[in-house]
């Protein structure tokens, strides 16, 4: 079983949900990201999602776009991010989020092999739908890299079946019809999406896109197996001062809010 699968098994046993923070690798530089990986795990992250910078991130709102630009200004490449994961030796699973073209240029097969060898546990590619992913899935399976595909509120049940069939580790449930960003309110559609996914598959579902506050994280933890928080953390890296300490503090707050759910909601799932 993959490290991601084992993590969900453990969390299910504890009636807790996964907290998955996202930052862009190399924002503002690779050394900071290395520190952030350790700090996030310390603060209670169950998995860490690292963004590989891309020049044209069409699924992202302005906050993540700026982060990618900062990382690109430092010349960060796929190879740098894979090596960073190797050096960081994260205590919790690491998932890379990358647009497809940097992976295509690196070579899909070589990417999967190198990523797995350096301790990457899974990959999310926001512009690679499951039915275009033959090459990725074929290369990822034998090296034990989980392939995490996305589902959205617009996904039909037929689509959910296609995506569930190719997903391993977890399924990334997109909370909103839209791009990443910080949002005041989360739409009601999430619950319905998670329920529709659960009718089809036992693969855990983590929900992301727009989850920005401890209150929202708790709300998502009530319906999904995990909560992905991105832009709200990335925004903290834009501010001057001790960025890593701020990340750590905020992730602790998210963790506490979510664990209040676990304690309350303990019981058969």
């Amino acid at each position: 079983m993959s490290r991601i699968g084992a993590t969900f098994d453990r969390l299910h046993g504890e009636h807790r949900q996964a907290l998955v923070p996202f930052v862009v690798a190399g924002d503002p530089d690779l050394a900071t990201t290395g520190q952030a990986v350790r700090a996030l795990a310390r603060a209670g992250a169950d998995m860490i999602e690292l963004g590989v910078p891309f020049s044209d991130p069409v699924a992202d709102g302005p906050i993540n776009q700026r982060a990618y630009q900062r990382a690109l200004a430092g010349g960060v490449t796929v190879r740098d991010v894979i090596e960073l994961v190797g050096q960081a030796r994260s205590a919790v699973p690491v998932v890379l989020l990358s647009y497809y073209n940097p992976i295509v240029q690196y070579g899909v097969g070589r990417f999967c092999a190198d990523a797995a060898r350096h301790g990457v546990d899974g990959v999310v590619i926001p512009d690679l739908p499951a039915d275009e992913a033959d090459e990725l899935v074929t290369a990822a399976r034998p090296v034990g890299l989980d392939t995490i595909f996305l589902l959205a509120p617009t996904s039909t049940d037929a689509r959910i079946r296609v995506v569930a069939g190719r997903s391993s580790g977890f399924i990334y449930g997109v909370s909103v019809t839209g791009v990443t960003g910080v949002r005041d309110r989360l739409p009601e559609e999430i619950q319905e999406l998670v329920e529709r996914i659960r009718k089809v598959t036992r693969v855990p579902v983590c929900v992301g896109f727009g989850v920005s506050t401890p209150v929202q994280a708790r709300r998502v933890a009530e319906i999904a197996d995990g909560v992905i928080v991105g832009s709200a953390l990335v925004a903290l890296l834009e501010q001057p001062g001790d960025k890593v300490a701020r990340l750590e503090q905020f992730v602790r707050e998210l963790r506490e809010a979510m664990d209040a759910v676990g304690a309350r909601g303990a019981g058969p799932s």
């Binding site: 512009d127 275009e132 959205a152 996904s155």
Partner: peptide, 12 residues
């Protein structure tokens, strides 16, 4: 060719 877009757009 192909369809390399976010999942949200696939049904559209």
């Amino acid at each position: 060719g192909g369809r390399y877009v976010p999942e949200t757009l696939i049904p559209a």
